[in-house]
């Protein structure tokens, strides 16, 4: 189980975002959709405090402004659509190799995939291993940027099953996807973003 806390965001504003407010409860998946370039990824990056912006954020009683950036990001984890790699071997990117390997297997990858060189990974394998890397230390909040964009149906189902298990464990998630079907399968709540403004989506 994860230490469940409510994620609260107030007035997130940047060159691409306009006064975005959002509350995500533990065990809730909020799906954000919108046209390309509308600010979906920038919203997730602002929540993770990866880009300069105005606004406030709390995780339960914890005020982001009173925490260091790294401490916040260890709890509020952004997972990019195209995970990047910095070492030669997959396992060198993992802080908890045993847990990462278990996660990789649950996502349909081979048990020895942590020994693979990064250069041999396909786009889909990179995406699943990027997810395993982000989930291995059980952050209470996940910010997922098109986590299945490069995956086939079977791998997509495996990722969605893992996300549902994490949701049941109390993890709060903000999920960006272009797939209406995926949004329907996973979302507790659906929002639209257009020109940087966050709105309730018509269900």
């Amino acid at each position: 189980m994860t230490n469940a806390e409510i994620l609260t965001l107030r007035g997130l504003t940047s060159t691409a975002l306009k006064d975005c407010n959002l509350t995500v409860a533990p065990g809730e998946i909020v799906v954000v959709q919108g046209p390309s370039g509308s600010g979906k990824s920038l919203l997730l990056r602002a929540i993770a405090d990866l880009d300069p912006h105005q606004g406030a954020a709390w995780l339960g009683p914890l005020d982001r402004a009173r925490m260091s950036g790294p401490a916040w990001r260890r709890m509020v984890r952004y997972v990019a659509a195209e995970p990047a790699w910095w070492a030669d071997r997959v396992g060198d990117h993992m802080r908890h190799p045993k847990r990462a390997a278990e996660l990789a297997v649950s996502l349909g990858l081979a048990a020895d995939c942590l020994d693979w060189p990064v250069t041999r990974l396909s786009t889909g394998e990179k995406q699943r291993l990027g997810l395993a890397r982000a989930l291995e230390d059980h952050p209470p909040v996940l910010l997922l940027d098109e986590p299945t964009a490069a995956l086939d149906d079977a791998a997509t189902r495996a990722v969605e099953a893992l996300l549902k298990r994490r949701r049941d464990d109390g993890v709060a998630m903000v999920l960006v996807t272009h797939s209406d079907a995926q949004a329907a399968r996973l979302a507790n709540r659906r929002l639209m973003i257009r020109d940087g403004c966050l709105r309730d989506a018509v269900s």
């Binding site: 990866l50 990001r73 984890r77 910095w86 982000a134």
Partner: peptide, 22 residues
């Protein structure tokens, strides 16, 4: 050149000098 990899390390909670160590 390595912007995406540095950003990934920062997103995982690495402090700036640890992320930029390479």
């Amino acid at each position: 050149r390595d912007r995406a990899a540095l950003d990934a390390r920062i997103a995982l909670g690495a402090p700036r000098f640890e992320a930029l160590r390479p």
